[in-house]
């Protein structure tokens, strides 16, 4: 379970998150929507431990562990996964090597047995097939020369292989056509179960047609101003953010 209490964060002197309260119970998928600049991406970065953000107040725990005091790799080993809005290119690092290194690093941190190269290839190929990714994407350098859609699929592939307990998807739908969107949504839905929870950050309701959330939260100016069921997303789609933001003010 993810529990965020009164979380405040800043970049330098600029306050971005101004007291976020959010609870995502085990097994649930929550969507966070909001206008540009509301702090959606900052929330995902603070939870995953990206340097450059100062937590100025509040707490965030996952299954009782204090996330904010952990290194990014420790959070990953605990089961936290961030699907990047802009996946990073790693020239000179092969995708297969990257994925296996990451998987084994996590296994090592958890005291589990590492996976050997043939075992990994079998696992990766099966997941790639489900995501309609060609085998040669394992041989290519991480995200180098990938189209926008391929990069997002590669994020979902990483998620499928690393099997996190908490996935944070930061605008994973941006830049995807409808077919790719369905593939990505299927990839997320296939992870759903009693031990998987997700925070789906999105600008548009469209993704939520395919990944149906248990709860929807609206983020504005660094605070959650409204929460509701999936119908809240439809209301936002119909009326825009302005009405809800005005109502909350």
């Amino acid at each position: 379970m993810l529990e965020i209490k009164n979380l405040e964060a800043a970049i330098g002197d600029k306050a971005i998150l101004r007291g976020i309260d959010l609870v995502v119970p085990k097994g649930e998928v929550h969507a966070i929507m909001g206008p540009n600049g509301s702090g959606k991406s900052t929330l995902s970065y603070v939870l995953s431990g990206r340097p450059g953000y100062d937590v100025t107040g509040g707490t965030a725990t996952f299954d009782g562990h204090d996330l904010l005091s952990m290194e990014p790799e420790e959070r990953a080993a605990l089961g936290v996964f961030l699907a990047f809005q802009y996946p990073v290119e790693l020239p000179g690092v092969g995708n297969a090597n990257f994925l296996r290194t990451a998987l084994n690093a996590q296994k090592r941190a958890r005291g589990e047995a590492e996976i050997d190269a043939p075992g990994f290839l079998k696992l990766a190929r099966a997941e790639m097939k489900r995501l309609s990714m060609p085998d040669d994407m394992l041989k290519r350098n991480v995200n180098v020369g990938f189209s926008g859609g391929e990069k997002k699929r590669n994020e979902v592939l990483q998620m499928a292989i690393l099997k996190p307990k908490l996935a944070i998807l930061d605008e994973t739908d941006s830049g995807l056509d409808i077919d790719a969107l369905k593939i990505v949504a299927d990839g997320v839905n296939s992870q759903r179960g009693p031990d998987f929870s997700a925070v789906v950050i999105t600008h548009y309701q469209r993704l939520l047609d395919y990944i149906v959330p248990d709860r929807v939260h609206v983020l504005s100016a660094g605070r959650i101003i409204r929460s509701g069921g999936p119908e809240l997303a439809l209301e936002l789609e119909a009326n825009g953010y302005a009405a809800i933001v005005a109502e909350a003010a």
Partner: peptide, 23 residues
């Protein structure tokens, strides 16, 4: 950015730096 990307996937900082130097 590259360093954080690797670490966010569970690769410890020193190993991530080595991977980037090798790359």
């Amino acid at each position: 950015e590259q360093l954080f990307y690797l670490r966010s996937r569970g690769v410890p900082a020193a190993e991530a730096r080595m991977m980037l130097v090798r790359a």
